[in-house]
Simulated scan of single mutants.
Amino acid sequence: MRIQDLIESILKGSQSLGTFTLPDLLRFSGDGSVSGLAVAKETEYELYLALIRGEPEGAIYIDGKGELYGDKALIRITGHEKFVLYDIKPDIVDAVVMGCRIFEKTHLGKSIAYVIPEIGKKSSGIGLLSLTVLRGRESQNGLRVSIRKDGQIVGSDITTQDGSAGFRVMYGGYDCIVQDRNQVITSFHITFDETETHFALEL
């Protein structure tokens, strides 16, 4: 059975929860209560996102050349798609995710950053949060940095050669979680606003 046929059989009779852009979809599902499949059918390709309790866990991209799954599918998101979200039981979505699991959700964050316009970002309360991770005076590259708000992880990145990581997020308070090469986790609390956009995190 083709993957499209399998998904169509799952969607048959499922309730649509609405049509969303990617950022709106993630905001809508962000309270953790939504599980389902989000479907974007464009002229040249089809894109499916599988959400379990608000978290995007799987992705499928299909075009004339074939099919891509998981992270490879995720990087094909342009950010301009319109997704129709269908309410589906978590155990059914989980079965779909087994074949298309997302491991690097940072790709999704980059897609979101792409579609948020620069114009009006001040009034909308969105900005670019920049972090630098240091130990002593040395930049720490290759470390995973996550930012969390109200207990939910809203972004994850790997530090570059100069120890930096970046996120496009709403202004407000965040917990920054840094995991070093020894798996030691250090947490920092920051308050991000238009007057303070860069923070140095000293391990």
Rank of each mutant, 00 (worst) to 15 (best):
E55D: 08
E55Y: 15
E55V: 13
P56F: 12
D63Y: 14
G64Q: 09
K65T: 13
E67T: 15
E67Q: 14
L68N: 07
L68G: 02
D71A: 11
D71F: 06
L74I: 05
L74T: 05
I75H: 08
G79R: 03
G79L: 04
H80I: 15
H80L: 15
Y86L: 09
I88Q: 03
D91I: 10
V93G: 05
A95P: 00
M98K: 14
M98I: 13
C100H: 05
I102R: 03
F103W: 14
E104L: 14
E104V: 13
G109M: 11
K110G: 06
K110W: 07
A113N: 07
Y114V: 08
Y114A: 12
K121G: 06
K121F: 04
S124T: 14
G127E: 02
G127K: 05
L129Q: 03
L131E: 05
V133L: 00
L134G: 03
S139R: 00
L143M: 13
L143Y: 08
R148K: 15
R148I: 13
R148H: 11
D150M: 08
D150N: 15
G151I: 01
I153N: 00
I153Y: 01
G155L: 06
S156P: 10
T160A: 14
Q161E: 10
G163P: 00
S164E: 05
S164A: 10
S164D: 05
F167C: 01
M170K: 06
D175C: 01
V178R: 01
D180K: 10
D180F: 07
N182W: 15
N182V: 12
V184K: 14
I185K: 15
I185Q: 14
S187A: 13
S187W: 10
